[in-house]
Simulated assay, not measured.
Amino acid sequence: MLGLKKLVYASVIGFAALSASAIQADECNVLTATGNSEYPPYLWRANDGTKALLGANRLIFDELARRMKVEIQLQDVGSWARAQDMLKTGRIDLMAGAFYTVPRIQYMDYVYPAFLDTTSVVWTKSGATVDYSQRDDLKKYSGVTVINNSFGQEFDEYAKKELELSYVASLKQAFMMVNRGRAEYALYEKNPGLAYAELLGVAAELNVLEPAISSEGLYLTVSHLSKCNTGKLRGQLAKTVQEMIADGFMAKALQQGLKDWAAFPHK
């Protein structure tokens, strides 16, 4: 009798585990994703009231979904800080583009290799006298950047210790502070910054200083708290990303993102 009870108990446990696996497999045919929606040509908001996200990263995620035979819902959840919080709390499965930092690996898994690269630069008001040829030169000036934005682990640590930085919710606010003289420089990625300066109509009023402060890879990441975060999923993502890099899709997506942004109605 005892043996029969054990057998029944084991069968119940086994059935429950299989049911849970089946439910998870079914749920994970649909993945949610988000990213920095002020990040052209990689990602930006449509202006038709749909809250759709456009850009190179949108093309990349659509192709990932097609090749992996899953649905990926790319969502605009608001600011870059909120997007990161949504991933941190498991309300979103995937992040469409993040630099590698130690704080972020506490709540997201990185999929290797990076799918694109980007450089971050110093932005100043045209005509401003900011003497800059290396990062230490920034110590004597007041700067601004976007909340929770990263420039790579090494520069983030340097900036925290050495630079006088204010943090604002959006790139628009950062550029306006520089343009109005409330900050002497801004730190942000070059391509997205150039694209957004055009959108705001301030491209002629801002300068990009060289050299770049950092050059970092953009990674696809998976929330630690996503119910879909398994070794199998991460392996599939890594394999597909590598294939898309090898066959030139990533480079083509970036070029298409640049073209789409140039044609986008900015007003």
Rank of each mutant, 00 (worst) to 15 (best):
A128N: 11
Y100K: 12
V111C: 09
Q173I: 10
E162P: 00
Y110P: 01
Y158D: 03
A114Q: 14
N149T: 13
N191L: 14
V122E: 02
K160N: 09
D131T: 06
D117S: 15
K139W: 05
A114T: 04
E157K: 14
Y158I: 07
Y132N: 09
Y185H: 06
A128C: 04
D156T: 07
V168W: 01
F155Q: 11
T118N: 09
Y107R: 10
P113N: 10
K190G: 00
W123P: 02
R182P: 01
V121F: 14
N149W: 14
T124L: 00
K140E: 09
Y185A: 02
W123K: 07
S150H: 14
A114L: 08
Y112F: 15
E198N: 08
Y158H: 11
F155E: 08
P192M: 07
V146T: 13
T124I: 13
V168G: 00
G152F: 12
L194H: 04
V144W: 07
A183Y: 03
D136K: 15
L187S: 03
T145N: 09
A174N: 04
I147S: 05
G127R: 06
E184V: 05
L163P: 06
V122S: 09
G152Q: 04
A186P: 04
Y196C: 00
L171W: 12
F115L: 06
D117L: 13
A114M: 09
V111H: 11
F151Y: 14
A195I: 02
D131W: 02
Y158T: 07
Y112C: 00
Y132E: 03
Q153F: 09
V102I: 14
S120Q: 07
Y110C: 04
E189P: 07
N191S: 12
T129W: 02
Y196L: 15
A197F: 03
Y107D: 00
Q173N: 13
R182A: 05
V122K: 08
D137E: 04
K190N: 03
F155P: 03
L116K: 12
T101M: 10
T129C: 00
D156W: 10
T119D: 11
G127F: 07
D136H: 13
G152K: 08
S126N: 04
L165C: 06
A197H: 03
F175S: 01
S166Y: 10
L165R: 07
P113Y: 12
S150V: 10
F151C: 05
L194F: 05
P113F: 13
